[in-house]
C-alpha cells in the first residue's frame, strides 16, 4: 500500500495541470461565447451550392 505515498501527489499534480489548462482557456477567450460554438458545429455541415453572391446594391 506504500504506493499511495506516490499516487496522491501524482493525482494532485495532474489536477493542477488541469487547472492551469483551464486558466489558459479562459484567458484565451474560449468561454466568451458559450452558446454559439455549440450550435455552430451543427450548422456548418450542409453546404449550399456556392453561387457568387453579388451585392445587389452595387
Amino acid at each position: 500500500m506504500d504506493v499511495i505515498y506516490g499516487l496522491l501527489p501524482g493525482m494532485l499534480l495532474l489536477g493542477i495541470i488541469a487547472v492551469v489548462i483551464f486558466f489558459w482557456a479562459v484567458k484565451n477567450g474560449q468561454y466568451d461565447d458559450m452558446d454559439g460554438a455549440a450550435n455552430r458545429i451543427l450548422m456548418e455541415s450542409d453546404q449550399k451550392k456556392d453561387e457568387s453572391n453579388n451585392d445587389d446594391e452595387k
Binding site: 466568451d32 461565447d33 454559439g36 455549440a38 450550435n39 455552430r40 456556392d50
Partner: peptide, 28 residues
C-alpha cells in the same frame, strides 16, 4: 437572436471577397 443568426452572418460574410474572418458571438 439565435444560433441561426450567427450561422447566417458568418456564411453571408465569408462569401464576400476580401473578408478574412468573421466570428459572431451569440452571447455578447
Amino acid at each position: 437572436h439565435c444560433a441561426a443568426c450567427v450561422w447566417l452572418i458568418e456564411n453571408a460574410l465569408t462569401k464576400q471577397t476580401g473578408i478574412i474572418t468573421a466570428e459572431a458571438n451569440l452571447t455578447a
